[in-house]
Amino acid sequence: MLYLMAITAGVLFAAGIFMILRRSMVKVLVGILLLGYAANLLLFNAAPLMRGVPPLIDPIYGVPAEYADPVPQALILTAIVISFSVTAFAVVLIRRAYAVTGTGDLDNMHCTDIPCESEEILSDLEDEII
């Protein structure tokens, strides 16, 4: 199972990285989501995988002899909820960027925040310091 999980996480990572390298903003967001899944799986597998032994304390028998590690679970639980809000935020960001720039292509946005001719800024700075 572990090997299968490792392969799954590996594929998710690879797909996530591939998507994040795309030019479309939406695809970059999809890449981030895939990376989130992959990271959760990675964390989940940090402790030995066990079936049918959730980390619950039995009211009668107390601490079970075998139990799944609760620590990664607690970590992943909040990560999932946060990833939802991050997704929401990213979606809004993309939406606004699209509305403002009229493009969903990152390469076309390249020159929207700073002038592409950074030479000018540099030479100004040079005059200033010397």
Partner: peptide
């Protein structure tokens, strides 16, 4: 808080 945040976000989207 989770109710508030999720409903808030989704309503913002829905109304947009």
């Amino acid at each position: 808080l989770v109710i508030g945040v999720v409903v808030w976000i989704l309503l913002e989207f829905a109304e947009d």
